[in-house]
């Protein structure tokens, strides 16, 4: 027991500080990916409702591909494939080399996966908002953009929140996959510690406990946001 405490401690004999930086990396990656996934997913959901058949088709192709591929494979495709494409592009154009780090590759790969799933959540949320809301806004003389921001979006967020909350949890867990391409997140730090100390059970157990803490904190936060979006209803 004391031995375990030393191993998990901070300082040069313990892995506590490494695991702590791992937590920071995991949380940073998740938070950095979220806006990409939400923004792209929202645009895709607009495209899927579009009257423009080509646009709709493009969005559907995107969803089919990134919902169907294993996340791990998407990650490898980005890390190896996109990097190779960028390299040949910079060689051809004479621009300086840009190589995606494992962090950025993770952001891109998990971002497109998140977008593929969140576009469906947004789409069904859009469908749940009655047409009259848009028409009402128009009748008040609001422009298309204003109707979207002032009338549609607040309701959309409320309806989509449970679905998006689930996707956030998936994102948080999927960041663990990025350890496979070398990102020093919770899981990778645990792996290194387990190798060196020969205590895999202790360190993978600790990693799992850390993920559990993150998901519990997330559920609390999502619950808070949920109550906040529904604050108008409480008055009833």
């Amino acid at each position: 027991m004391n031995e375990s405490l030393t191993l998990l401690g901070f300082g040069s004999t313990g892995w506590g500080d490494d695991l702590a930086t791992g937590v920071v990396v995991t949380v940073t990656l998740s938070l950095a990916t979220l806006p990409i996934g939400l923004g792209l997913g929202f645009l895709l959901s607009l495209a899927k409702q579009s009257e423009d058949r080509l646009l709709k088709l493009s969005a559907d192709i995107f969803t089919t591909i990134f919902r169907g591929l294993p996340e791990l494979l998407t990650l490898f495709l980005v890390y190896f494939g996109v990097n190779a494409a960028l390299k040949s592009l910079s060689t051809a154009t004479g621009l300086p080399d840009i190589a995606l780090s494992s962090f950025v590759s993770g952001m891109v790969a998990l971002g497109v996966v998140f977008a593929a799933f969140s576009s469906e959540v947004f789409l069904s949320a859009f469908r749940a908002i009655p047409h009259g809301q848009r028409e009402g806004g128009m009748a008040l003389g609001l422009g298309r953009a204003k109707v979207m921001v002032l009338v549609i979006l607040p309701q959309l967020i409320k309806i989509a929140l449970p679905g998006l909350g689930n996707l956030w949890m998936n994102l948080l867990k999927d960041t663990a996959l990025v350890s496979v391409i070398g990102l020093a997140d919770i899981l990778r730090q645990a792996q290194v510690a387990a190798r060196v100390s020969r205590e895999p059970f202790l360190f993978f157990g600790t990693a799992i406990a850390l993920y559990l803490v993150l998901t519990i904190l997330s559920s609390i936060a999502i619950g808070g946001i949920d109550r906040w979006t529904k604050r108008g209803e409480v008055a009833k």
Partner: peptide, 13 residues
């Protein structure tokens, strides 16, 4: 990681 060593070199990491 070992199995990505050569691509990472080629890609300029």
């Amino acid at each position: 990681d070992w199995d990505g060593m050569i691509p990472a070199l080629q890609n300029g990491n």
